[in-house]
């Protein structure tokens, strides 16, 4: 059987790793290539690099970072941030990415998912969605780093994304992100039960038990986290040993 995955996510701005707290308050942490190697050695199952560089002229720095990383780690690498066209997919795949994640651009133009899946295969198209609970006990899709409420229902979007060709779905919960008090188990589970592609939980990891909860009760196939790993609060090696003891099927190495 397929192992549940632990995925560190690195937000990269102009070639440096940062971590946002509720998408604001960024603080510089480390060099992406060094950090990628470190996580690789710690037993990360995959890495996500998220480009948050605002200015286009600095985007090339990011591609160089992707290239250097792909040359020095031997686990899958997912790239996200600023992907708007099939051409953008091609650029990062050429630089050495294995998967590409789209967020806002897919909401604006859902056909982007289909076009990319047809050209590169659905296994490399990751649909990342920022979701927030609403007053009607449902969840809504937000775009542009959580600033714009699209009014689209999260479950509907996940199902549509899968049918358009997404090979994987990242559910990032805005309400729990940066709080470090656990993933949103309910939203993650609902989406996971609704789609047949793997679901990656994101937003809210604070302690080892949070990972267990979302992989077990949130029915996630993978759990993504940033700051708990960057600040060394949780070591991936120890986390996996903990999960293994709790009966979660993880890759030990």
């Amino acid at each position: 059987m397929i192992a549940k995955r632990i995925i560190p996510c690195l937000d990269v701005d102009a070639g440096r790793v940062v971590k946002g707290k509720k998408f604001q308050d960024l603080s510089d942490v480390n060099d992406p290539v060094t950090l990628a190697k470190y996580y690789n050695d710690e037993g990360a199952d995959e890495l996500v690099f998220y480009d948050i560089t605002a200015t286009s002229e600095k985007r090339d720095i990011f591609l160089q970072i992707v290239e250097q990383t792909a040359e020095s780690v031997y686990i899958p690498l997912t790239i996200g941030g600023g992907i708007r066209t099939v051409e953008d997919f091609k650029r990062v795949l050429r630089a050495g990415a294995d998967k590409v994640s789209v967020n806002s651009a897919a909401v604006i133009d859902p056909q982007l998912i289909t076009a990319a899946a047809l050209k590169f295969g659905r296994q490399c198209v990751v649909l990342s969605m920022d979701v927030k609970r609403n007053e009607d006990k449902g969840c809504t899709i937000y775009t542009h780093g959580g600033r714009i409420n699209t009014g689209i229902d999260a479950l509907e979007w996940a199902v549509k994304g899968e049918s358009l060709g997404a090979g994987e779905i990242v559910v990032n919960c805005i309400d729990t992100d940066g709080i470090r008090n656990g993933y949103d188990l309910e939203i993650t589970r609902k989406i996971s039960e609704e789609v047949r592609v793997p679901v990656i939980a994101s937003g809210g990891a604070g302690k080892s038990e949070d990972f267990y909860q979302v992989l077990q009760h949130g029915k996630a196939d993978a759990a993504l986290a940033a700051s708990v790993f960057h600040y060394g609060d949780i070591r991936i090696r120890e986390l996996k040993s903990y999960l293994d003891n709790k009966g979660i099927h993880v890759r030990r190495c």
Partner: peptide, 8 residues
Amino acid sequence: KIPHMGWN
């Protein structure tokens, strides 16, 4: 789930 994707 198909593709068979991930660590096995």
